[in-house]
Design a protein around this nucleic acid. Sequence first.
DNA 1: CTGTATCCGGTGGGATACTG
DNA 2: CAGTATCCCACCGGATACAG
Lengths: 129, 129
Amino acid sequence: MSQRNTRVPERADEQEACTLLEVISRVSGKWSIVVLLETARRPMRFTELERAIHGISRRMLTLTLRQLERDGFLVRTVHPTVPPRVEYAATDMARELHAHLSGLTEWAERHRDTVAAARAAFDEAAAAR
Amino acid sequence: MSQRNTRVPERADEQEACTLLEVISRVSGKWSIVVLLETARRPMRFTELERAIHGISRRMLTLTLRQLERDGFLVRTVHPTVPPRVEYAATDMARELHAHLSGLTEWAERHRDTVAAARAAFDEAAAAR
DNA sequence: CTGTATCCGGTGGGATACTG
DNA sequence: CAGTATCCCACCGGATACAG
């Protein structure tokens, strides 16, 4: 989502960071991940996604879908009926990404308490000063 | 009555998406990942990081370090010497996160060409319209 | 039903001068 | 050496109105 994060690596040891930032930038938008998860299970229609994803605006749903389609994570299919029927289906690449992200989710759940404790300690130390 | 058509919003999916967004938000800043990678190898001093990370401003290095310290990814140690000597060291949790992120890097490298091709095709189709 | 167009506020991040 | 303070701007995302 945020293209401002792209930059050219000047050093070899920054190459990995650049690659990581590249992929993370693609899914770091506010709605990218939840759209990926919804479509990973089965193809979804526009309004179906709009109803399933609580709080998303029509504009952001469109932008997020376009971006995911552009990067090859979603395939958009228009059925020429009246009214129009558009389906968004996750690609194999997207499902593979989802598997890696699940690893991150597992990590996050395992360390959630530790992070919360670290934050509380940091904030308390800051307040004490 | 048959309730086959009533669709309950997928709470589990949104929950996972929220957890994922939480952890990704912590490392999606422009400089978070490269700072994590640099400090993961060995403890680093402030100016050392400033020199190692090409293009980072003093302000953003400070903000990034504070944020990573607050979440428990870095430990900041001040040696009471003159001039002051401050070292930032990655925690075990941060190194574990780094391992998961490496999986993402591998995925990104494997699919880099596919993504590039998808983008080119999408942009060309958009230009043709 | 499936989008576009427009306006607007909040925020992430750059440049740089100052400081203990 | 290791930061902080200030100014500034680009861009993300929300609300809403319009359209094929």
